[in-house]
Write a protein that binds this DNA or RNA. Structure first.
Lengths: 195, 195
DNA sequence: GATAATACAGACAGGTCTGTCTTTCTGCAA
DNA sequence: TTGCAGAAAGACAGACCTGTCTGTATTATC
């Protein structure tokens, strides 16, 4: 009964297993054999669903990307029409994420650090992810009617990326205030348009 | 004559070669065989100077750490007594570094992303490096006499770390203005002590 | 019931990795 | 001149890696 294997139940199991292993230990440190053992899957099944390990790593980042935007969109929806509040809310959920046990940085940035080749399929996912983040932040900055929304978006991108990689040097207790205040300061530092 | 091999000329050659290979391609992606071939060194010589590859990676980060502080100290010395100017100067040299050809992020953060084990020798170097950066920034923040120098130091640490990892999404031409303005905004956002 | 698709289990090939060891050579110091 | 420390060159062991292949079992559909 348990091995009923609905259409591509297997694929999901492989991907979910690989995702947690890749995130916890690093994609390069985790071998295919470990993935199939933990996912209780045959090696041939893995290679039926993913052409190469590199493709599996890319699929992992796509999964993380989708999760990320699900959270982002939910937070944005709560503050529709109030871009300042939305930005602070993003700072808050990011701060909360840093405090999670086992947090080990942004998966996109981690994988990008592991695979230097700009043509690696996973690296392209990571680049697209970061570009989209800046674009989303630019939309919020435009609603704030600051003089240079693109610059503010860039600053917020840098701040958020910095938060993701700085969990080791920022305490869980201070992250929220630190980031919220930083978002406020950066927004305030961008002069209003026409002012 | 060339193979004169002054005391530990060999060690320096190994370390310099490993450093550039590790930085360009990632420490996990580069094998010992490639290092010894490029350094024109025997494998036994490498293992005479470095007990394991992990130690070589740690030595690479120590080298980068030393380089980093050499630059930092030089910039700080140029602005002794003027912490606001010093912070902006740091933003400037970091922005300039991002624009270098082949720039691939902060080596400390890259290696930390590659080696998840908190007991890895290189990881400890990276953690110490980041702690020291925050401590140095705290000293500057204290001179600014802001209400919460530790928070401002944390914000600047996040900002600078974010700059290191965001080179892919920040143009070379905009980095300087973006970072300098961000430093100014964060400093201005930290209310003066007693104000 | 027969057929096709998919899963599992695991052997296997071919390559790469770290780290050890042997052998030969070179330069320096007593 | 005689030792000797360090270096070069490279064989080697043993582990591990990705990806392929064979064979068997299970499931779903006709």
């Amino acid at each position: 009964m348990p091995p009923s294997s609905r259409p591509s139940d297997v694929r999901e199991r492989i991907l979910a297993t690989a995702a947690s292993l890749f995130y916890e230990q690093g994609a390069r440190a985790v071998g295919i054999d470990l993935v199939i053992e933990r996912a209780k899957v045959a090696k041939a099944s893995l290679y039926r669903h993913f052409a190469t390990k590199d493709d599996l790593v890319a699929a992992f980042l796509e999964l993380e990307d989708a999760d990320f935007w699900r959270t982002w969109d939910a937070v944005a929806a709560e503050h529709a029409g109030d871009p300042a509040a939305e930005l602070e809310a993003h700072a808050r959920w990011i701060a909360e994420r840093l405090a999670r046990p086992g947090y080990r940085g942004c998966p996109q940035l981690n994988v990008a650090a592991e695979f230097a080749d700009p043509n690696h399929p996973a690296r392209r996912v990571a680049v697209d992810h970061k570009r989209r983040m800046r674009a989303r932040l630019r939309s919020s900055a435009e609603l704030l009617e600051v003089a240079d929304p693109d610059q503010l978006a860039g600053q917020l991108t840098v701040l958020f990326n910095g938060a993701f990689v700085s969990s080791g040097v920022i305490d869980a207790g201070e992250a929220e205030a630190l980031l919220v205040m930083a978002v406020r300061a950066l927004a305030a530092g961008s002069a209003r348009r026409g002012a």
